[in-house]
Amino acid sequence: MGRYFRTLRRFWGMALASEVEYRFNLLIELVAVVANLASSLFVLSLFFGDGHRLGGWSWPAALVVLGVHQLLDGLTITLLQPNLTRIVSHVQEGTLDFVLLKPIDSQFWLSCRTISPWGLPPMLAGLAVIGWAAQRAGAPADPTTLVIAGLMLLCSAVILYSLWFLIAASSIWFVKIWNATEVLRTLLTAGRYPISAYPPGLRLLLTVVLPIAFLTSVPAEAILGRATASWLVASGALALMCLLISRWFWRFALRSYTSASS
């Protein structure tokens, strides 16, 4: 275990050092965070003119959902995108062989090899929105709520990781998969709005088939202190299941991996 932490520190230190080379990007990324937040706030606000509500959610409560989405978006930019989109080129160029030969778990290596600092601004923005909106919505700030909210956020992060990993790992068969992650990102924008705002058919689709409800709405409910036990258990079980599936799927995928030239 200690070995994994030491490796992680080396990996990330190196990644940060190389990213700081592109200082011009820092400016762009900061402007992008502000622009992103402003545009999603604007679109969300269109649903709340004249005291309207969205799927039974008030404006501050819906803002919590948006904040959770921002937080997950930051996580995607920091960890998921830079690592998992690289599996494709490992398969294409045959360098996956070298990864598999290393004396370390290959899923861990592929998922944590590098880190991008550009996800931090969206994450901080997301946390700020959540904090402000939760207070406005009158969410209880007692330790139990905070712990449950933290656990739910962790679950949603695990689910998101597993979805990304499943798609990225399928590049073993379909060499060009870059677009599929882009489709996933687009579909995930559905998570900017509370799940109860969608019509029943779509709601079912976004809960059961593509578990977007568990990514943003369920943690938001937990933050607002109105989560029910059954949703909490379902979320935890789903996270565990997704993680196990991603684990199993990787082993299964490796069985049909035949290296680049064979």
């Binding site: 269109l46 649903f47 709340f48 003119g49 004249d50 509500r53 799927g55 677009n179 969608y198």
Partner: peptide, 28 residues
Amino acid sequence: AEIALWSLSGVVPLLMLGLWSQSEAGQA
């Protein structure tokens, strides 16, 4: 195959249709 996926990633307006047709703001 890739272009099929791209077309699929354009479904956002259809998701938004679901939201607007359900919401009070959409009816207004």
